[in-house]
Design a binder for these strands. Structure first.
Lengths: 235, 235
DNA sequence: AGGTGTGAACACTTTCACAGCA
DNA sequence: TGCTGTGAAAGTGTTCACACCT
């Protein structure tokens, strides 16, 4: 199912060439706007100005408008954006209409937390395949999903046409498992292992590295006090 | 609310030297270099050139040198960097010499995964306070740490001089809990709730939003087929 | 030679400011 | 009138290229 490419070839609802590269920050903001807009929708707000949206999303009105402008013009001058319509537009831009087939590899602590993570489900990412190496885990049921043997990875990816793999294995295993997944046809990887994966260019990769986030905090806290007198570090 | 910037109005109190703003990407790369260098150290490599480091970290040699140049000159021309010394330098830059007091708020599935997350410990971030609202959880022991009542948050933060809070509570609670933590003296927050926190400027904040990462993947996969010309690798 | 440190060039992102439309 | 959409300006981050040191 979902023949990857060329779903927009013919009658694309998108206007002119969207072929220019969209920056990662723009994409992340779109995801953010989407969440904000869904909340506004629930609160019964029918329209939203770029200014209102910016306030809720922690950015600026100009940024909001520029972000949307890469994909078309969705607003009404003098009025703002129709919340429900904009939700649909962003979902379409992000490809959330597609029911991606997602597999989780690694049924350890992080894996299980991710599996249960309510926000994946509510946003349409259903994990219906879980793999692990540990014989103690293989065969165990998580809800309606049974943990399967990672040795079956290739067959499973092919048969179920897995698009995205969530990688929650130890760093030492990450590259090898990723290679196998890619070889079998996976197109995107969400990597939780603290390891720099080397992948073919056409494979989409997102890393989540929580240590990096904590170390960024540490850096900021360390710097905060250094304004008046730099605590010099001599050689 | 939040009287934005009123601290830097007149002349900048910041000194020249090392006080220029360091970009977030630089900080994240430093964290990455550190991990790579530690691995090289274990492998017995005594020196590393910017080129070798770049290869392992997935960036460029010029980028590596520029990143370091913001903090000093740590290399030897013609030779490269002394691995052990550079590890020490980066740890110092990131403030990893400091034993930050970290509290985890939210002992649910994500919270427990984070608590057990080996990489926090091995990198020196010890979580020795865990709080939750749920009476079923309060009093339970996780290793040597006993889950405490979140109603005690203010007292605990003050008494234990908590620097950093890892926020793993539902989005609906996140802002309120963050406000209390900040009020009690916390200086940095690692936020796992999919909620845009509004905090005073001097509080360091890092967000981890896994849905956003998955949606970025979805966007890339959706766009993949739409490239103007697939640059096939010519022989 | 070999590889760092860094100003200058380049590329990319954000902000400004205003024309244009509902 | 009010707010979008967008070129142009300003600001940031990355890459280049080479002087300089070991």
């Amino acid at each position: 199912m979902i023949p990857a490419a060329r779903r927009f070839t013919a009658a694309s609802p998108l206007r002119n060439a969207v072929s220019t590269k969209i920056s990662d920050s723009t994409v992340r903001r779109l995801s953010h706007y989407l969440r904000v807009l869904e909340a506004m929708h629930l609160q019964g707000e029918a329209t939203a100005s770029s200014d209102a949206l910016a306030g809720r999303a922690g950015t600026t009105a100009a940024q909001v408008r520029k972000d949307f402008s890469h994909f078309g013009s969705f607003g009404k001058r003098g009025t703002g954006y129709d919340v429900a319509a904009l939700v649909r537009e962003i979902r379409s831009i992000l490809g959330l209409g597609t029911a991606w087939n997602v597999a989780l590899i690694g049924a350890g602590r992080i894996g299980s937390a991710l599996f249960e993570y309510g926000d994946f489900r509510s946003r349409g990412f259903r994990i219906d395949t879980v793999l692990d190496v540990d014989p103690e885990r293989i065969g165990v049921s998580w809800g309606s999903v049974v943990i399967e043997d990672i040795s079956e990875l290739e067959r499973i990816v092919r048969e179920r046409e897995i698009d995205i793999v969530i990688l929650a294995v130890p760093a030492s295993q990450a590259q090898a498992v990723a290679d196998r997944a890619v070889e079998a046809g996976v197109r995107g990887i969400l990597n939780f292992a603290p390891e720099q994966l080397q992948l073919p260019e056409e494979i989409a990769l997102q890393n989540v590295n929580m240590v990096m986030e904590l170390e960024s905090l540490s850096f900021e806290l360390t710097r905060a006090g250094r304004a008046p007198e730099s605590e010099a570090l001599a050689g």
